[in-house]
C-alpha cells in the first residue's frame, strides 16, 4: 500500500491532523475492550477508507487480515484452558493433551483477532491517506532520521513489491525444478538488502548525512476547514474512547463466563464514535489540490 494524493477531505487535511485522526482511531482500537465498540471502530476505519477513495486498498488489507482473525480465534480456542461453557470436546490430542473448546475462549480469541484487524486497518488507512513527505517535514526538527526512515520505508514498499513480483515471475520461467522456499527467502532478503544499500548511498550523496537545517524555519499554512473538522473529530474519538473505558460502558470480560454489556449506553457510544469519525467527510469543498 502506498500514498496517492486523492480528492478527499482526509487527504486535504494537513498531515499532522490526518495523522492525529488516525492516532485517535488507533487509540480506540487499542484500549476498547468491548467488541461492539471495537466493531464500531472498524466501521469507522473502513467507512473512512471508502469515503477517502482508498476503499479498494483497505479491502486488500482485509483480505489477508480476516484469515488472521480466524487463526487467532482458533489458536486461542485450542490452547486456552479458561472458560466454563464447553462447546466441543476433542479429547486427547497430540501435544495439546486433553482439549475442550469453550465458548469463552473462542469469543476471547475472536475479540483479540478483531483488535488486530482494527489495528492493521488503521495502519493501512494511515499509509494510504497521510502524505509521508509532509510527515517527514513535520518531524525533521524533532527526529529527522527516524522520520526519514519511516518515509523511505513507505516509499520502498511498492518498489519491493515489484521486486518480489519480478522474482516470482523469474522463477516461473525456470525450466527445471522450482527452488525451495528457503532459497527464495534468502534471495528476496538479499534483494531487500541490496535495495537498502542503494537507497542509503543515494541519501548519502544527497547530503542527508550532513543535513543542515536553515534557521529561518519552514513555511506557514493557514488552517483549512478540513484541518479543523478532523481535529474536532479526533478529539471526540479520543474522548469517547477514554470515557467509555473509564466509565465502564465498554466493559468486557470473557472468563470464566462471558460478560459484554450491550445496553443502550454501549450502543450510543458506538454510534457517536461512527458519527464523529465520518461527519468530517461530508464537507467536500476545497478537497482538490
Amino acid at each position: 500500500m502506498s500514498y496517492h494524493r486523492r480528492a478527499s477531505p482526509l487527504h486535504a487535511a494537513r498531515a499532522v491532523i490526518a495523522m492525529g485522526w488516525c492516532a485517535a482511531l488507533l487509540l480506540a482500537g487499542l484500549i476498547e475492550p468491548n467488541p461492539i465498540i471495537l466493531g464500531a471502530t472498524l466501521v469507522c476505519t473502513l467507512g473512512a477508507g471508502v469515503l477517502a477513495g482508498v476503499g479498494r486498498s483497505l479491502a486488500r488489507t482485509l483480505r489477508w487480515s480476516l484469515p488472521m482473525l480466524v487463526t487467532i480465534m482458533l489458536i486461542n480456542a485450542l490452547v486456552s484452558r479458561n472458560g466454563l461453557t464447553v462447546i466441543w470436546r476433542f479429547g486427547d490430542l497430540p501435544l495439546l493433551g486433553q482439549t475442550n473448546v469453550t465458548l469463552e475462549a473462542t469469543v476471547y480469541g475472536a475479540v483479540l483477532g478483531l483488535r488486530a484487524v482494527v489495528l492493521v486497518s488503521v495502519g493501512a488507512l494511515y499509509s494510504a491517506t497521510v502524505d509521508p513527505d509532509e510527515v517527514l517535514k513535520l518531524f525533521r526538527s524533532l527526529s529527522f532520521r527516524s522520520a526519514l526512515s519511516a518515509t523511505v520505508a513507505t516509499r520502498m514498499v511498492p518498489v519491493l513489491t515489484r521486486d518480489a513480483h519480478r522474482l516470482a515471475e523469474a522463477q516461473r520461467c525456470r525450466s527445471g525444478r522450482q527452488p525451495g522456499r528457503l532459497a527464495l527467502l534468502r534471495a528476496s532478503t538479499a534483494g531487500v538488502l541490496d535495495r537498502a544499500l542503494d537507497v542509503a548511498a543515494t541519501l548519502e550523496v544527497r547530503g542527508y548525512g550532513a543535513a543542515r537545517k536553515h534557521p529561518g524555519g519552514g513555511e506557514h499554512r493557514r488552517w483549512s476547514r478540513h484541518d479543523i473538522g478532523f481535529l474536532f473529530s479526533a478529539l471526540v474519538l479520543s474522548g469517547v474512547a477514554i470515557a467509555t473505558l473509564i466509565s465502564g460502558v465498554g466493559a468486557f470480560s470473557a472468563y470464566p463466563l462471558l460478560r459484554a454489556p450491550a445496553g443502550a449506553r454501549t450502543l450510543s457510544a458506538a454510534v457517536v464514535l461512527v458519527l464523529a469519525a465520518l461527519v468530517p467527510f461530508a464537507d467536500r469543498r476545497g478537497i482538490e489540490r
Binding site: Y3, P132, D133, T151, R155, V159, D198, A201, T202, L203
Partner: peptide, 13 residues
Amino acid sequence: SLFQDPETQVVLG
C-alpha cells in the same frame, strides 16, 4: 551523483 537505477534514487513521494 547520479547512479544507474532510478528506482532507488527517488526516495520521496
